[in-house]
Deep mutational scan, measured.
Amino acid sequence: TSEVNPQMLQDLQAAGFDEDMVIQALQKTNNRSIEAAIEFISKM
């Protein structure tokens, strides 16, 4: 599995997102940004 940015993971979990969804979103967006991860999650 590709690495996820631990700070982004922590921030998104703090915002109430599920850890598994956050990890998948960060991997799919290559840790580009929190906004990109949220957009990915919203389309899941």
Rank of each mutant, 00 (worst) to 15 (best):
N30E: 14
N30L: 00
E35F: 04
D20R: 10
F17D: 08
I23T: 12
Q7R: 10
K28T: 07
S33A: 01
A37C: 05
S2Q: 12
G16D: 03
Q27M: 10
A37R: 01
A36P: 05
S2D: 11
L12W: 00
E3L: 05
Q13W: 00
E3D: 11
K43P: 05
E35T: 09
I23P: 02
I38Q: 13
N31K: 01
P6D: 13
S33C: 04
L9Y: 04
M8G: 02
L9Q: 10
V4N: 08
K43M: 11
T29P: 03
D20Q: 11
K28C: 10
L9I: 05
I34L: 13
A37Y: 01
S2R: 12
L9P: 03
D18S: 09
S2C: 09
A14F: 04
A25L: 01
I23K: 14
F40W: 15
A15V: 04
L12H: 02
P6C: 07
A14H: 02
E3C: 00
A36D: 11
I41M: 14
D11N: 13
T1D: 14
S33G: 10
K28H: 15
V22W: 01
Q13D: 03
M21I: 15
V4I: 09
M21D: 14
A15D: 05
L9G: 03
D18K: 10
N5D: 13
S33Y: 01
L26Q: 04
K43H: 15
Q7P: 01
E3A: 07
M21H: 06
N31I: 02
D11V: 11
A15I: 07
E35R: 06
R32K: 15
D11M: 09
N31P: 04
I38T: 12
A36G: 08
A14T: 08
E35P: 09
F17C: 03
I38G: 09
K43E: 15
I41A: 06
L12V: 02
I23G: 06
I34H: 11
Q27H: 06
D20A: 12
Q10W: 06
E39W: 01
D11W: 07
A36H: 08
L12K: 01
I34W: 03
L26S: 05
A25Q: 01
L12M: 10
M21Q: 15
A25S: 06
Q13N: 04
A15R: 14
T29I: 02
I23A: 10
D20P: 09
I41C: 07
Q13Y: 03
D11A: 13
D20M: 09
S42T: 15
L26V: 02
